[in-house]
Simulated scan of single mutants.
Amino acid sequence: MTTTTTQPDRTAQEVVARAEAIAAKLVDRQAETEERTYYAPETHDEFVEAGLYRLLVPRRYGGLELGAETFARVCMAITRGCPSSGWLYMFGAAHSLVVGSLFGDQAQRELFAVGDFICPATVAPSGSATRVDGGWVVNGTWRYCSGAPYATHFMGHTLVQQGNGHEPTPLMFVVPRESWRLENDWGAQLGLRGSGSHGITVTDAFVPEHHTREGFLSMVDATADLPGRALHSPEYGGGPLSFMLLELGILAVGMAKGALDAYADLMRSRTTMFMPIVPRTEDPDFQFRYGEATGMIAAAEAAVIDAVRQWSDLAARGGAAITRAEELRLALIGREAVRLCWRAVEGQLFPTAGSSSIRSGERFERVWRDMSMLHSHAGLGTFLASMANRELAKAHFGLL
């Protein structure tokens, strides 16, 4: 179980180095992670000891508050070692930033009191909420709750019926672990089988008013006054939509780096199929493929890390700077990072890796499945693929 002991101060460099060391051990545990549908309890304990679940928890409540760029680099490192583990970790730990930005001091004190805050979230509405004295009673099942196996909380959305022909209104809520049940419904998918993206069922859970917020997380107006700006550093007033979608680019870079590692291993261990028969490391064609993919992946990493820095810079400038157009522009950088990474793997590495490298259980086969699965994420496959382009144009020309 997650501990609640106070973490000693750690520098960003120390935390990233620790994540890289843990990630190196995850490579050989990918198969068992998929079989279990989430990473091992020992890995979870290592994350706890390293303070990785507290990276984005505000210092005011006992966290490390090491910032968005450090979090991005940690997520890349873990995903490079095991895409499923990186996905599970990121979407469990990322929402400390959301809580620290959108909720008031009382709610934050109560929610962050667990110490290591792990809170999967979904934006698709489900279930129901009934108004009662002091809050709401929530019921329902929410699917694709990545990070659920080790979660301390869950953040979901539901629609509140208004009656009299009025449209229902969205409600965001946070409930603690004792208020929900983990469903056994993950692991049969094409990829990311170890990402712990289980369903969560909430039954008659009382949610106090201050643990809820009207509206969708994806539609938060960051130009408005957000509680986190008054409580913490400027990043707790940054754009929720753009950060949420940049996460997909961060994950893609980590996955592609893992694919490049696997390809490099193949180059070292195998020879060419056609004359002259030489180690692949000495063959000009394999050298070209490796170099081409390296450049694409490095460009994607540079783009997404710079986009995270831009996100932080906008947050530092204050709410007026974080317009919908700026949020969408940053999110689209994340999309382009995904595209670059996929082109590197799909166009350069996969065709020349060899069929034996994509047998079931091989590292290259697994990362191929996982990157394919990434494209099925609604944020990438639906919103960033088309809707975001139109919304950005409308925002730019004052049509929103």
Score class of each variant (00 low, 15 high):
L159I: 00
I333P: 12
G196N: 15
A224S: 00
G334H: 14
G127E: 08
G238P: 11
T11R: 00
K394N: 15
W342Q: 13
S355D: 10
I78Q: 10
G127L: 05
L241A: 09
D265E: 09
R36Q: 08
A23P: 05
A21D: 08
A344S: 09
A325L: 15
V345K: 03
R329W: 13
L182K: 05
V160H: 00
F286G: 01
L97I: 10
V207P: 08
H153V: 02
G295E: 05
D265H: 06
E69C: 11
P351W: 07
D105R: 13
T37W: 02
R59Q: 10
R177I: 04
S84H: 04
W186H: 12
A300E: 05
L26M: 15
P41L: 12
M255C: 05
D116H: 13
E69M: 09
A222M: 07
N164M: 00
G134T: 07
E178Y: 03
S312E: 13
G63M: 01
V220S: 00
L251C: 04
V99M: 10
D185P: 06
E183M: 09
R59L: 11
R363F: 11
F47H: 08
W186C: 05
E167Q: 05
T122P: 03
S179R: 02
I305H: 06
T271N: 01
Y39K: 08
W142E: 01
A93F: 14
S312F: 06
T272F: 02
I358G: 08
L246F: 12
P83F: 04
R131D: 08
V345T: 14
A224T: 05
I358P: 08
T271M: 04
A262T: 09
K25T: 08
F288T: 02
R29C: 13
A252R: 06
A321D: 14
C145N: 11
L226W: 06
G239I: 14
A224H: 05
T323F: 14
D28T: 12
T43C: 13
E14S: 01
V27R: 14
A121G: 04
M90Q: 15
N139L: 12
T5Q: 11
R339H: 15
T141D: 02
A393H: 13
R280M: 00
L266P: 02
G215L: 00
G67Y: 01
F173D: 05
S128E: 12
T169L: 02
R80I: 07
L159E: 03
N184D: 09
A262L: 04
L192C: 14
E65H: 07
H396Q: 15
L384K: 14
H157R: 03
W368K: 15
A113W: 09
G381L: 06
Y53D: 05
D221G: 02
A303V: 13
H211F: 11
A252P: 07
D28E: 12
R270F: 04
A31W: 15
E391I: 07
S101H: 06
E209D: 10
L182I: 03
S195L: 12
F91T: 13
D265I: 02
L328Q: 14
T2E: 11
A325K: 15
W311N: 06
